[in-house]
Amino acid sequence: MSTKKESLFSKKNMKLIKDPLNDSNPISIQVLGICSALAITIMLENAFVMSMSVLFVLIMANVVVSLIRNMIPDKIRIIVQLVIVATLVITVDQILKAYVYEVSKQLSVFVGLIITNCIIMGRLEAFALGNKPGPAFLDAIGNSFGYTWILLVVGFLREVFGSGSIWGFKFIPDSWIISFDPLTGGTDGFYEHNGLMLLSPIALFLVAGVIWVQRAKNRKLIEEN
């Protein structure tokens, strides 16, 4: 056993933050937590609030589980983790309802479903149970930011093309939108929001696009079959 104390910001630990942002991104590489990425990315704001909730839950859960990792009996560890995560999620839910009620209404059931977000259980099982609180904290930050940036990219694209706005600010005037003109029988305007962007399946295509770009840049990621 090495007695040398490892610095919290050593190279190895920094890798915990950097890796999930790109090479082992929870969404685009490990394909975890896809359901929430599909469901709540219609607006940028929703995606951001969701990401922050996951950030909070994941950091707290990772640190807490890591702190008590030697006390948790192996047989019931999933239940213990679930209790911790559920407590945190309920807290988040109450906070959202208190301070950003509109957004929390739109996120509806998906805040509660953070409990079942595979990223959280995955990190607890794979990392927090076997590591000290410090690295667990960094791992949580890395993974939730990996989750966040993809959600923000998808949310940005869906909001811009689906509703013509960014963070609720409309930048496409209504006069551009195609409308029927009863005087001439023709149409006015030339633009139309893309309705497909408001449907969840399009997020799959957008995530696929992110995966595509990522693998084209980093050919190591391409699996051989």
Binding site: I178, T184, G186, T187, G195, L196, M197
Partner: peptide
């Protein structure tokens, strides 16, 4: 893609026939 993205242009009764009046004509 068109059908789901731009339903107004691909269905309903305004989509199929152009009713724009020729030059000089009016309703």
């Amino acid at each position: 893609f068109l059908f789901f993205a731009y339903p107004k242009q691909l269905s309903g009764d305004k989509a199929w026939v152009n009713t724009e009046l020729p030059e000089g004509y009016s309703y």
